[in-house]
Design a protein around this nucleic acid. Structure first.
Lengths: 204, 204
DNA sequence: AAAATTACCGACCACTTAGTCGGTAAAATT
DNA sequence: AATTTTACCGACTAAGTGGTCGGTAATTTT
């Protein structure tokens, strides 16, 4: 436990620097030397802690990306409140964070999913699994929303989840090419009206 | 004109093979030698026709990608009919084509936009321009749809266009990871209900 | 027929890549 | 104090990478 502290610290430093550069420049376009240079560490240190570049990236997924997605998109929507309201707020918060982040290269998961698709099945699977957890979470939230009288009974939760995830991934891609503020505003206006159409209408 | 025929033919062969490999493996992950190998041509031939790898890719954008996007997403929605109906059919057709294409690596424009974002501003600009044309086209179509009584007056065309493009790019990314049929079905069901909410309701 | 141009070949160059490996100083264990 | 383990160094390798360049056969132009 204790003796692993230095090991863990160094590995973590590498992972953080690695994610930053991979996110910024892409995985295939970033060399291990690039990462090492930014840390003033050597090849030896890298291959002492990780078996390969792929192994390294997988550890980044498991240690950093999973947490990031959980913290931003999954945990914030858990709860007993009106799922439509909670989802709307969660997505808006996330877009707002992206908007004010000058180093925004898009939705991490979306970027890597695109980069590895058809090129590295192992990594793709890890990424897809995270997306799947998000999806399942939204679906069960919507289902509970029906029981609680927030969501209309006729709503097809699976389809709504796919639609929400799609639109979010897409708008995050669009936002990186400037005009993020306007895009977020526009997106949220449409999302709001879409979500509203899913609501259980109160009987007068 | 005539003497350029062979030149044009060879260049076109290279561009077609290049797009296929770049689309499949990514730009940075595909070497010029990869492309040449598949054509049984040499380095000499390549650099006789193109100045650099970047110049080559730009020519691919201008000669192939532009046409592809135009043919699939822009031309099919031009006309005088109900824009909401036309857009729905166009996107469905496009998804259907993707669904039945076993070599589908996602929406070309989206993939390259993601790959080049923050890494090559020149190429990014070319890609963004194509997206912009698509967007402008949707917007003007919706505006005309208002005059023609198909689209409700209160609809914010800009926002709708962004929302449509976002959701389409997103669903295309999701579709490459299997289950394309179900995803298309789900997506279209939600898109339909969203588009329906934009329609000018007939007065009874 | 001679000269020039076109379209291509492939060896070569400087550089980068992921990954290997023998070494080593410091710390932990015995 | 002796031994072993930990965490790291950095030179090295083999396989690419984008790009250059001298050459050449076939075609066109003169």
């Amino acid at each position: 436990m204790d003796k692993n502290l230095k090991r863990m610290a160094t590995m973590h430093r590498m992972q953080v620097a690695g994610l930053e550069l991979f996110y910024e420049q892409g995985y295939y376009n970033t060399s291990i030397d690039d990462i090492l240079k930014s840390l003033e560490l050597s090849k030896g240190a890298f291959y002492y802690h990780f078996q390969s570049k792929e192994d390294f990236f997988i550890s980044i997924i498991q240690n950093l990306i999973v947490q990031k997605v959980y913290g931003t998109l999954i945990e914030p929507i858990e709860g007993k409140e009106n799922p439509l309201v909670v989802i709307e707020k969660c997505l808006d918060d996330s877009l707002q964070k992206a908007e004010h982040n000058q180093m925004d290269y898009g939705f991490v998961l979306n970027n890597f999913l695109t980069e590895f698709n058809g090129r590295n099945e192992t990594i793709s699977r890890y990424l897809r699994d995270i997306l799947k957890v998000w999806e399942v979470n939204i679906i069960s939230l919507l289902q509970k929303g029906k029981s609680d009288g927030f969501v209309a009974r006729h709503v097809h939760s699976d389809a709504v989840a796919s639609f929400l995830i799609s639109s979010y991934m897409g708008i995050r891609t669009l936002m990186v090419e400037g005009n993020a503020r306007m895009l977020r505003y526009n997106y949220m206006s449409q999302l709001k009206s879409y979500l509203n159409s899913l609501a259980q209408k109160e009987l007068a």
